[in-house]
Every structure is written in C-alpha cells, then in structure tokens.
Amino acid sequence: MAAYMLLAGAIVLEVIGTTALKLSEGFTRPWPSALVVGSYLLAFAALGQVLKLGMPVGVAYAIWAAFGIALIATVGVVFFKEQLTMPMVMGLGLVIGGVVLLELGRAPR
C-alpha cells in the first residue's frame, strides 16, 4: 500500500511540474521554472522509492503515465481552457484501461 501512496504522490508532483512548465513560458518566468525543477526532482525521487519497495518498473511507469496523462489533460481543460474531443477522451480511456489490464495481469493466480 505504501508503494501506491508514494506513486500517487509522484504523479501529483509530476502534474504540478507539468502545469508549472506551461506557466513558465519557456523557462522565462523564474518562480514557475523553479517549481518545474523542484516538482520533477521530488516526483522522480518518489518514483525511485516506489521501485525500491518492489513495484515492477513496467507497472509503476504505466500507472504513472496513464494517470499523469489523464490528470494533465484535465488541468488543461479546466485551467487553460484547452479543448478535449471525444477521440481524446476515448484515447484516455484506452490508456487507463491498459493500465488496469497490466495490474490484473500481475495479480497472483
């Protein structure tokens, strides 16, 4: 359970960093730029701990990527008024579905 909590924290930090990346305007704004670097450093440190706790790298990265994509797409729509089309929603669903299948596939039989 600790690995999943750390992974959730890593995902949130990555989303914060990616959001700050948008706000940094190409690293021309100092505070958002510092937030990018700090958030990514902490996110990767947390991901490293997740792997140290024994979560398989493929599963950890799949969860990281899928939920990071879904969350940052949501941030884009809510805060930056970006468009989200039905094919994009379907793609997000497929990515998340793939992660669920990876998790189910590693469960003991």
Rank of each mutant, 00 (worst) to 15 (best):
A2D: 06
A2E: 12
A3R: 13
A3S: 15
L6T: 04
A8Y: 12
A10M: 09
A10T: 03
I11T: 05
I11E: 01
V12R: 01
E14R: 05
I16L: 10
I16G: 03
L21D: 02
L21K: 01
L21F: 08
K22V: 04
L23Y: 04
E25C: 08
F27S: 00
T28H: 08
R29T: 00
P30M: 01
W31Y: 07
S33H: 03
S33L: 02
A34E: 05
L35Y: 05
V36K: 02
V37A: 11
V37C: 01
V37M: 04
G38N: 01
S39M: 04
S39V: 04
L42R: 03
A43Y: 07
A45K: 02
A45F: 11
L47M: 13
V50M: 13
V50G: 09
V50D: 05
K52H: 15
L53C: 12
M55V: 10
P56R: 10
Y61S: 07
W64R: 09
W64Q: 10
W64F: 15
A66M: 04
A66V: 01
G68S: 15
L71W: 11
I72A: 02
I72S: 04
I72C: 03
V75R: 10
G76D: 04
V77I: 11
V77S: 10
V78I: 14
V78R: 03
F80M: 01
Q83S: 14
L84W: 00
M86L: 15
P87G: 06
G91E: 02
G91K: 00
L92V: 14
G93R: 13
V95Q: 06
G98F: 13
V99L: 10
L101E: 02
L102E: 15
L102P: 13
L102V: 14
L102W: 12
E103I: 15
L104C: 12
P108C: 11
P108M: 08
P108H: 11
R109T: 14
